[in-house]
Simulated scan of single mutants.
Amino acid sequence: MQIIELLTPHYEAAWLPWAVQYFFLAGVATGGALLAALCAWGARGSLMRRLLPVAVLTLAVSVIAAPVSLLADLHQPARFWHFYAHFTPWSWMSVGALLLPVFVTLGVAFIASWWLGRGGWMRALAPLLVLSALSITFYTGAEMMVIRARPLWNTLWVPINLALTGWLATVGAAFVLERFLPATLRPGAAALQLLRGIGLALAAALVLVALAWAGTGMAGLNRSFDEALRLFRDFPVWRLAMLGSAVFGAAVVGALLRGRHRLGATGYTLVLGLGLAASAWAFRWALFMGVQGVPKFGAGLYLYHMPLGGDGLMGMLGVAGLCVALVALASWALELFPARQDAAPARA
């Protein structure tokens, strides 16, 4: 009997959980920017205009928390300076170092113009904010799409899926955050129904994109689909991550479909919103961390164990704590210094 021993070197994960937090919050921020810009052009007293305060609050929390996650993912915050001192235009990370400060600046300026009641400034900033949000959406997706060593990522469908799931998480975050607004700024049940409609439209777009991805794969036009089937068949770590993400996402979308007459219940919107956000986060975890559990080439597994320190669990809890602190600070500020932007009273 011949015994053959296979040795596989141990590799650390290239993308740490910090990256999951950053890509999640960046998706929420771009969705919040698009929603806020759209609401800014809504007629005074319209349902879209009544969604503006919660869209601004969603944007405020995510546009501040996302860059913090990025700096943490770089391990050394001073490393950010290298992107400017040694600019490399062929690197999406280097390009993103230029795009992200513009987006954050425009987001903060938009929030300030709403708070100060400068409707003209707010509407003037809205188109610039939309363009900047789309640039962040494309750059974050391109960072993964250009990695040829991972055929699952090396496809245009990845940026599209990241965008749609991120914007669906924005809807979920808005459902959660609207309860922290002062009573005069809460949108009311009718506006929440409109927000639910936006969520359903995004969910439908995700289904169509998934069908198109599978269709092009079966037609031999998409390597990513074949790679997903191979990973699902051969690697339990990917199978478990993807099945869990898909089942959880389907359950949340089902709750969104059946929630037409329940949006007035505060507990229901809270659970629904958290579920939508969590499903988008779980998709990113499967895409980033689950895929890194399988080898790029050859045999073996790249075993990843969640560290308990800053690079793992504590870092994730720290980002969650930062978001909670920002929500609390914004709620306190709105109570103490009410926004001067027009806001229709909440109506059923």
Rank of each mutant, 00 (worst) to 15 (best):
P307E: 09
L313E: 04
A333I: 01
L257G: 01
L152N: 07
P77L: 07
A174G: 00
L185T: 01
L334P: 01
W213T: 12
A346F: 08
L134D: 05
G293Q: 14
R260C: 00
L129A: 07
T184N: 08
I147Q: 15
I147T: 09
Y11V: 10
A246R: 07
L202F: 02
F110I: 03
G166S: 02
T266I: 02
Q76N: 08
W285T: 03
A348W: 12
H82K: 00
L274Q: 03
T140R: 05
F138M: 07
A55E: 05
W285H: 11
M122S: 12
G217Q: 08
G254M: 10
Q21D: 12
S113L: 09
R44F: 02
V158I: 15
W114K: 00
T8G: 00
L57Q: 14
W92Y: 15
V324N: 06
G215S: 10
M314N: 09
R258Q: 13
H82E: 12
W115L: 07
V294I: 09
A33Y: 04
A280T: 06
A33Q: 08
F232S: 14
V237H: 11
A212W: 01
A124G: 14
K296E: 15
T30M: 14
A169V: 04
A149D: 11
V176L: 14
L59Y: 04
L257C: 15
V102H: 07
F248P: 03
G199A: 10
A97M: 05
A65Q: 05
L52I: 03
R196M: 04
E143N: 03
L243G: 03
A13N: 08
Y302T: 06
G259F: 05
I198A: 12
G117C: 02
T105P: 00
V20K: 06
G117M: 10
R233M: 11
V158G: 01
V104K: 03
R260H: 11
L272H: 03
L308W: 08
A169Q: 11
G300K: 06
L336R: 15
A212T: 14
A191K: 06
I111D: 07
A246L: 15
Y84H: 04
F87E: 04
Y22S: 02
T58N: 10
